Simulated assay, not measured.
Amino acid sequence: IGVPKTLLELKTEHNYAVVEMAMRARGEIALLTQIAQPTIGLITNVGTAHIGRLGSEEAIAEAKCELLAEMPSDSVAILNHDNQRLLDTAARFWQGETITYGLEGGDLQGELRGTDILQVEGQEFPLPLPGRHNALNYLGALAVAKVLNIDWQPLTQGLSVSLPKGRAQRYELAGDVVILDETYNAGTESMLAALQLLAQTPGQRHIAVLGTMKELGEQSRRLHHRVGQKVKELGLDLLLVLVDDPEAAAIATGAEGIPTECFTNHQELVMRLKDIVQSGDRLLFKASNSVGLDRVVGELK
Rank of each mutant, 00 (worst) to 15 (best):
D82R: 08
D82F: 09
N83G: 08
N83A: 07
Q84V: 13
Q84G: 01
R85V: 10
L86K: 10
L86F: 13
L87M: 15
L87C: 08
D88I: 12
T89L: 09
T89A: 13
T89Q: 14
A90M: 02
A91G: 09
A91Y: 07
A91C: 06
Q95I: 10
G96C: 12
E97T: 15
T98L: 13
I99F: 10
I99E: 06
T100H: 04
T100R: 14
T100C: 07
Y101A: 04
G102E: 06
G105Y: 02
G105R: 08
G105E: 02
G106T: 09
D107V: 10
D107A: 04
L108F: 01
L108N: 09
L112C: 03
D116F: 00
D116G: 13
I117S: 10
I117N: 09
I117R: 14
L118N: 01
L118P: 02
Q119V: 11
V120R: 07
V120G: 03
V120A: 05
V120M: 01
V120P: 08
E121H: 05
E121K: 15
G122F: 09
G122P: 11
E124M: 09
E124W: 05
F125I: 08
P126M: 08
P126Q: 11
L127C: 10
L127Y: 12
L127D: 02
L129I: 14
L129V: 11
G131L: 06
G131H: 13
R132W: 05
N134A: 14
N134W: 12
A135N: 03
A135K: 01
A135Y: 04
L136C: 12
L136M: 14
L136G: 13
N137F: 13
N137D: 13
L139Y: 04
G140F: 04
G140M: 01
A141D: 04
